[in-house]
């Protein structure tokens, strides 16, 4: 497959996955705005901004005190995170970039995938926050999330299982590892700083990972942060747990053939293996879990970079004579 096409598929998948996380975060936030205490709402904003490593409007520092979020308007923040194109992490930006990538590699994906993505983008492209704010922002996010899920489902149902499929899946899983890990780190960081055990915030974190029911069934309805962390990091039954996402990444990478340089290809697979080992064998015994999560994030970024070096942007070292 053409390197550029593989790269396009990979990034299309990543942007769509990112849009999904943003949608889930904003869905929870839009519900919190209705009846949750101000501190919880502030925590929600800070979690989002810290996770995407961006400072919100109004000169507030993402990692500053929670009280700072009193200074800014929920309307403006929602708009910035949903519709503002200048914010590369807004849902619309993610969808737009996902679609731009999809447009370039349309011939490599199914018609149904393109149509699912294109129609949803066209549906929300001209929507303004004023159109949804007074009615029901949470319904908007629910519908949007359903459309993004539909895109993913359509891909699973229709995409040809060639290399493109494996790059699509790698993109999804690496984004899950990176975004998921950022969220967990943020949660720990904010919690450590504020020194509060914000049960509601851990509960909402479970919801973001689609793991609330699983937690209740596995443990109890009582929230214990360490158990939540364990579940979200290592329970492979949770579709978006870090370990599952890493294992699936490894699996997809092994389905891909070697890139032109065997050494880089080997390094890529070893790194994925090391990441899995970190979560599987180190995590249970380590007390410095923040550090492990930071290590996971570093490894996952290296994984992205090595993937690019292996398949997309490898150095041109001449052509073997046998090929001529």
């Amino acid at each position: 497959m053409l390197s550029n096409s593989a790269n396009g598929i990979y990034w299309m998948a990543r942007y769509m996955e990112r849009a999904s996380y943003m949608c889930r975060l904003l869905h929870i936030q839009s519900e919190a705005l209705v009846d949750r205490p101000v501190s919880e709402i502030q925590f929600g904003w800070r979690r989002i901004y810290t996770a995407i490593n961006r400072n919100p409007l109004g000169g507030v520092q993402a990692v500053g005190p929670l009280d700072d979020y009193n200074l800014v308007d929920a309307y403006l923040l929602t708009d910035e995170l949903t519709f503002v194109r200048d914010n590369p992490e807004s849902i619309l930006s993610c969808l737009e970039r996902g679609r731009e990538n999809a447009r370039q590699i349309r011939h490599c994906v199914s018609d149904q995938m393109w149509t699912a993505l294109n129609t949803e983008f066209l549906r929300i492209r001209d929507v303004k926050l004023t159109d949804i704010w007074l009615a029901s922002p949470s319904s908007f996010y629910e519908e949007l999330l359903a459309a993004i899920d539909r895109f993913s489902g359509v891909a699973t149902a229709t995409m040809y299982r060639d290399e493109g499929w494996h790059f699509f899946r790698v993109g999804q899983f690496i984004e899950r590892v990176q975004f998921g890990c950022s969220l967990l780190l943020t949660q720990k960081m904010i919690e450590n700083q504020s020194g509060e055990l914000a049960e509601a915030s851990w509960r909402s974190l479970l919801k973001i990972f689609h793991a609330s029911g699983a937690y209740d069934r596995t443990y109890s309805i009582e929230i214990q942060p360490d158990l939540v962390l364990d579940l979200l990091v290592t329970d492979r039954r949770i579709p978006e747990s870090l370990l599952r996402s890493v294992d699936r990444t490894t699996q997809e990478l092994s389905s891909l053939g070697d890139g032109p340089d065997a050494a880089t290809s080997g390094a890529l697979r070893r790194l994925a293996g090391r990441l899995g080992a970190l979560l599987r064998y180190d995590w249970p015994d380590r007390d410095d879990r923040d550090e492990v999560l930071r290590q996971v994030l570093r490894y996952s970024r290296q994984l992205d970079s090595l993937l690019s070096k292996t398949y997309f942007n490898y150095a041109f070292q001449g052509v073997p004579r046998s090929d001529i």
């Binding site: 497959m1 053409l2 390197s3 550029n4 593989a6 290399e163 790059f167 891909l256 053939g257 070697d258 890139g259 032109p260 398949y311 997309f312 490898y314 041109f316 001449g318 052509v319 090929d323 001529i324």
Partner: peptide, 18 residues
């Protein structure tokens, strides 16, 4: 940018090499 000319032949950059 996907194509390279080497020794008078044209190659495209694929995931498994030129």
């Amino acid at each position: 940018r996907d194509l390279i000319v080497n020794d008078g032949y044209v190659y495209m950059r694929t995931t498994s090499g030129l």
